[in-house]
């Protein structure tokens, strides 16, 4: 079986909390992070939601760290660029022989951006790791998202796993016949893998149409339902949390590290 975010979303300890509340908390945190004028509030979100993911939801730290590393490493790369190209204020550091320098303004902007991305990513992962997609579909239907989009999302969700399984099968059959021995072979095999996947995708698409026809498809999908109501206690706790973050972001807006 594959270790997927979806798997953890199904088995974590926050599964009994209403998906609507988790989604609300995640989205509101992202908004607060991106709108915060100073880096303290986003860092607070990052720390508190990471704690919630690790302690309350019991997601293994290694899994969480690996998942977090992917977007954060991308952010690091862009932040390094920003560090050098933004000007303003006294110069902190100059690269010898090149017209590149880090200024106070640039450093502050880089820290702010990194904090925002970090906080936002933690909030997004909080939703991704604690809320199963099937419950998100039900929620989307409830809040009136067009059914075409939901149906499409449900089909995509269903086929992601079939796609992974097929790719895995082809990859294994290639490895068994020593397909990835040398570099040139690897390139060759990868090309074959992608080509085969493309053809299988078309086949699957045709089979899907047949299957839907055979089951009297007339334009409606049934959306999975769920029955978790928002408990007043957790709702109030969420509001208090978001209020605190908002207050912190207002209070610490002018605070600068350098």
């Amino acid at each position: 079986m594959y270790e997927t975010l979806d798997g953890y979303a199904r088995t974590n300890r926050l599964g009994s909390i209403s998906p609507g509340l988790k989604l609300f908390l995640g989205l509101a945190s992202i908004l607060l992070c991106t709108s915060s004028p100073g880096p303290i509030a986003p860092l607070l979100v990052a720390v508190s939601l990471s704690a919630a993911i690790l302690i309350l939801a019991r997601i293994p730290p290694r899994v969480y760290a690996c998942t977090l590393l992917i977007p954060v490493s991308f952010a690091m790369m862009s932040v390094i660029v920003i560090l050098f190209i933004t000007g303003g204020g006294p110069v902190l550091f100059e690269v010898p022989f090149l017209p590149l320098a880090i200024t106070v303004g640039g450093a502050n902007l880089a820290i702010l951006l990194l904090a925002r991305v970090f906080g936002g990513t933690c909030a997004l992962l909080f939703v991704a790791l604690t809320t199963p997609m099937t419950e998100v579909f039900a929620l989307l239907k409830k809040i009136g998202v067009p059914t075409v989009l939901i149906d499409l999302a449900m089909l995509i969700y269903r086929f992601i796993f079939i796609f992974i399984a097929e790719a895995d099968q082809i990859y294994r059959s290639q490895v068994m016949r020593l397909g990835y021995g040398r570099f040139i072979e690897s390139v060759n095999s990868l090309g074959m893998l992608v080509g085969a996947l493309f053809l299988r995708t078309i086949d699957r698409g045709e089979a899907l149409v047949l299957a839907m026809d055979a089951r009297c498809y007339s334009g409606t999908f049934s959306t999975p339902g769920y029955s978790r109501s928002v408990s007043p206690r957790s709702f109030i706790a969420t509001l208090i949390y978001l209020g605190t973050v908002f207050a912190v972001s207002l209070k610490t807006g002018s605070l600068q590290f350098i």
């Binding site: 099937t134 089979a207 055979a214 007339s218 049934s222």
Partner: peptide, 25 residues
Amino acid sequence: FQNPDVQIIAPTVEADVAFGPVNLG
């Protein structure tokens, strides 16, 4: 169908079994 993966469309068991009846209206 021979291969159930071809036939199962929806993201949960319940939603999949409901596919036919829902489409029958």
